[in-house]
Design a binder for these strands. Sequence first.
DNA 1: TTGTACGCGTTATCAA
DNA 2: TTGATAACGCGTACAA
Lengths: 339, 339
Amino acid sequence: MPAGPTSRPTLHDVAREARVGVMTVSRVVNGKQSVRPETAARVRTAIATLGYQPNDAARSLKGQRSRTMGLVIADITNPFYAGCAKAIEEVARAHGYAVILCDSDEQVEIERQQVDILVRRRVDGLLLVPTANGHAYLAEEQVAALPVIALDRPIPGIPTDAVVVQNRRGAREATEHLIGHGHRRIAYIGAGAGLYTTRERRAGYREALKAAGLAEISRLDAADSATAARALRELAALSEPPTAIFAMNNLITIGVLQALDHLGLRVPHDVALIGFDDFEIAALLHPRLTLVRQPAAELGRRAAELLFERLDGRSSKPVQRVVLATELIVRESCGCRHE
Amino acid sequence: MPAGPTSRPTLHDVAREARVGVMTVSRVVNGKQSVRPETAARVRTAIATLGYQPNDAARSLKGQRSRTMGLVIADITNPFYAGCAKAIEEVARAHGYAVILCDSDEQVEIERQQVDILVRRRVDGLLLVPTANGHAYLAEEQVAALPVIALDRPIPGIPTDAVVVQNRRGAREATEHLIGHGHRRIAYIGAGAGLYTTRERRAGYREALKAAGLAEISRLDAADSATAARALRELAALSEPPTAIFAMNNLITIGVLQALDHLGLRVPHDVALIGFDDFEIAALLHPRLTLVRQPAAELGRRAAELLFERLDGRSSKPVQRVVLATELIVRESCGCRHE
DNA sequence: TTGTACGCGTTATCAA
DNA sequence: TTGATAACGCGTACAA
């Protein structure tokens, strides 16, 4: 009776069973070099008999790659990041790689701890959704030797490959769409300048306003649905309340909807609304929500592929930034009649 | 200039730098055995100077644990599973463990491939949301004494620890609630008997009907929102259409809502609805959705803790099944007036 | 085509 | 308290 995972058959066991040398077994397992078919068959039988599985820890130790990548993500329960993660895992598996999942919960101390763990595991590369600040540790020499791809947001102060979406353009188009509906008082509800995505989206909103000669109405103190709801209530209480809202992400969109519901304000009749980041049920709400869609799977896929490019030796290229297009999904909450 | 992740400083490098033996460094790193404070300080300086990080692959090879667990999940983009994953990662990290994420996409061939990969990595244990069938291969791993905890569903034909929710009871309570509203024709929309959760939920639905002397109206051909929508349209076309719907999961709930919307049927006025599995925006829909909530984070947490119990040596215990309570979140779609 | 010997970075064992 | 040495399982380099 085996005592534990450690008591698995090794190359030697298989070799003894098949009455060959260990290298013959190794060659059969890896299929790189030629082995006499007859011998190979005997080896394969022995492998099946013993239930042999190669030990990747030993392979990795031998100086090979660990065939593992680290994924440090801000919040896996955010459907957007979950979509990224799924695509990443698929690409990784297709390359024979495993993905170690780390959820930083948007906290840089956790993120740092997780990167440490990943370095100790000798992951071949890192996919990182960086928190707002404190990434100096990434510049340290030992960590710096590790290929890092930033996901969704560039890493503040650290030049690495990055895959992001057109936050600014997406926000500008959404705002322009509201302007096209004749709105003159369009409010932005979101967080402050901490995050790249936040800054970019607000910048896009402002660009559109400026081009139309309109004044900015921003609430930058909304981080989740509850604070977004409060921000909306305060905006609604103004003497000249906004007639349209641009919500910075899906949490804020939800909070805004809740608050509008409580206030008895109807969308788009009383207030028009466009949010950033699509979610599955948005097409089911009344009214159907007009949203800026981000290509989550594509983002994950491209990031993983970029990492493999680096790993495959094309590492001398300068740092790349891949920018993926967003798409304005026009439904009803903007004031359009749809379908 | 380091050439890559392989050129990291080792224990020997630190030992040379600190002018001590490798074992002294090892002892300082692990802090288990006593080292003279003076020596320890010198070692720590050397570690900092060189930026040394232990190599977990080597540790794992030496027969220690790999401090890694595998998570094979059916679909990370399902918010329910994402909630599980987040909790699992937290518990794992608290124990110094890393989590390798595998998304089987509900396909047993992929699942099997992933388990293979995890075995090769010598993970210390496995958390698995098993697909419907074909788990004979796992019996082999059991022989090899790899601890496996089933998540959300037991593994067909393989006795392992499992953490599940009260599917049957949750479904029964939901159905009873609809009966309490006076409904006599209550339809079940879901998939067939492939999955444990499916079977249990339908069983609960049937228990409630039987106790009330009502006839079953089941559609077992709905696997996603599109097929659920079709099933609902067909039910609505009956001469005596159901007056209430129990939807087996959140995808089906969404499909049902879409179909009702298209048909111009209002909830709960024309048809009452209760779904299994809560989702964030359910409280925002019109009407607010009454749902059976599953404790996703708790499920993940308990599963991870169960695994650590096994790893900590309390492995002689018989197989456990942890059953967590569901909760009927009463809002409006059932016919109740809420708030 | 096949086998032998060594080293990867770490820890356990034993000796000093 | 410390250090030298032998594994752990595999792949590379060489020899047969």
